[in-house]
Design a protein around this nucleic acid. Structure first.
Lengths: 204, 204, 204, 204
DNA sequence: GATGAATGAGGGTTCATTCAT
DNA sequence: TATGAATGAACCCTCATTCAT
């Protein structure tokens, strides 16, 4: 149908844009390259997004939406943690690490960090107005339920979630050389296990 | 003396360079602006650093050296932890947080992350060949001594150091809106206290 | 009926075109803006006029036709000049000045002058093949009749017409700041009176 | 000397700019062509004039200064009109026509008219704050002196000057096809003679 | 016939870098 | 060594024009 081509093209441009921005950075990326990657003429990019900054914004927002959804889905698995709490936490940890170490995810955070001054709105894609991360927030909810059920000794769920996230992700920075190299699965699992270990020592 | 002026100029350019790169990012920063900030003519910048990439490298390395030194000095305070281990850890934690939340420090990490693909050498400024952070390494050393002294129950000092660092710094990301706003001292102290709390629950 | 809509649309485009060209100049005007002004899609403009240059030509020619007709009508009033020749000349003068100072008239002359090199044909809209202005020509005819009737002492009617026109219009250039501001009626009348004065001193 | 090259280049750019603008019009002219005409790289143009609009302004102002100076010099010849007033007026008329019909002069007026809306300041180059032409003003001064000396019957010198100018220049519009073709000397002289003729009939 | 979408070509402007002094 | 001036290479964006429906 008529509009289908347009929608496809818009999506193709967004995808291409994120790819190129991820590869080159915002300033170094040139719209021509995005257009080429999307198999589209340069003005078509402008017809859809009117300027480079906008293209960046929208590409970043789309990526953020995808990433956040994946993260939330992972966290949601804590909802029906079975008998084995450690196993459940480890599973969530592994999944979160998987999300976090995805190359697109590194790229997203890198770009966000790099261009935050120029695009402050982008922060809203991952951070609530209250100043906490949306994923951490969801995690805090789940941890609170587990505390209510007497399975964890937590008084400040937000803080616990914050720290769980910290233990999971912060060690990845150095181990992946800031996202520039992949981590073998066993090492990823080790990080998850270590995080859960320490978390449970402190909170159970 | 004449040489002194030269050295001063070189230093002025390096300082200006970091300032400008921090403000604009590598690609968006232009050499003319660095020169202006350093009160120097553009070719003078080239006389000293031959090209923009070099200028960036050297400015980043100088900044990294300063930052790492400060961090190491903070960690070193654990060397003669007195009776009160919690207090000592908290003091180190606070100092590390202070270093970490310094605007120049955020800027450094932002630039490093953003330009890592183009300047992989820069990673060596903060990371050992073994793939661990130099500060984490030093911290691991200190924690190992405390374990040897029976004051902490640590089997893997590197992992413990990694996690101590994680608990200290990761929560700052959200709270400072990725470094875009300052944290009041009491909140910084709360983060340090929470980190030490959890750390001691797990490791003592 | 269907055809009528088409004609109306064509006319709407022509009007819009002149308006936009007058406002922006030929090169700075963009077809999209003309289409917008005419409440029509861009390709519709091309369906009717095939290219920008054509659109300009036709818009200018339509405008010229209107303007010349008005001017000729003004001149024609000399046909039955009553007793008072001065009054008749002044009336014609005032009317010609009115035509001349109409904003669309200024715009037309401005565009014509500006784009003459690119559209030399346009000159034919106001100038005879002999190289004289069509309005001047008509005026010369009328002056010749008056001379024949012994009411004016004219040997070269073309020259007289040329000078009458000159005395009427040239002073308007400075007074209207080249057409960028309106002239109050009394000042317009003063110019007409002065022109007729001098004309009659010389030619009667 | 050092600055000489710079000055020469600036001048070369200004000259080239006027040439190109005159040939193409403001919008159609491209900076690259100006640069080429001036045998200079494009950025050099920007180093000197920072943007196209500025380049235009300065080129126009330089041209206006030259043109006005020439015109004033012509008018000044009336200062010591000898016995033969008609001859003196004709000489001035011829010289003014020469200035007026210079191709650069046509181009200047064409550009001024075309871009007046975008560059209103340019009007000040030829028009006084009082709204009269600077050349007409100077001419009015000279005519006033001749009137004082009893050689002309003028009550309003400004009006007389305006009309003298009108009689001289307005007929040239049609005769040169709006400046698109040269006028042979005898025809130019005929216009001057006709203007002076009529002027003297009216004012002496 | 009218339109939404797409494109090729081109122009203004910036910037890293190099001369020449 | 330090600098004023100059430049080649890009890049963002616009626009006349054409498809496809």
């Amino acid at each position: 149908m008529a509009t289908r081509g347009r929608i496809d093209k818009r999506q193709a441009i967004l995808d291409a844009a994120f790819t190129v921005f991820a590869r080159q950075g915002y300033a170094q990326a040139c719209v021509a390259e995005v257009a080429a990657e999307a198999r589209v003429a340069k003005p078509t990019v402008y017809n859809h997004f009117s300027e480079k900054a906008n293209l960046f914004r929208e590409a970043m927002m789309a990526e953020a939406a995808k990433a956040v959804a994946e993260n939330l889905e992972a966290v949601d698995r804590l909802r029906d943690a079975g008998e084995d709490l450690r196993a459940a936490l480890e599973q969530v940890g592994r999944r979160l690490i998987e999300c976090y170490t995805d190359p697109r995810s590194w790229a997203f955070r890198r770009l966000l960090q790099a261009e935050l001054a120029r695009f402050p709105e982008l922060l809203d894609t991952i951070q609530t107005r209250a100043g906490t991360n949306v994923v951490t927030d969801a995690l805090a909810d789940r941890l609170a339920r587990l505390a209510l059920d007497g399975r964890l000794k937590i008084t400040d769920p937000t803080r616990a979630a914050e720290q769980f996230g910290a233990l999971l992700t912060a060690p990845l920075e150095a181990r992946t050389r800031m996202g520039t190299r992949d981590l073998p699965e066993n090492e990823r699992n080790a990080v998850a296990a270590a995080a859960v270990d320490t978390f449970l020592l402190a909170y159970s």
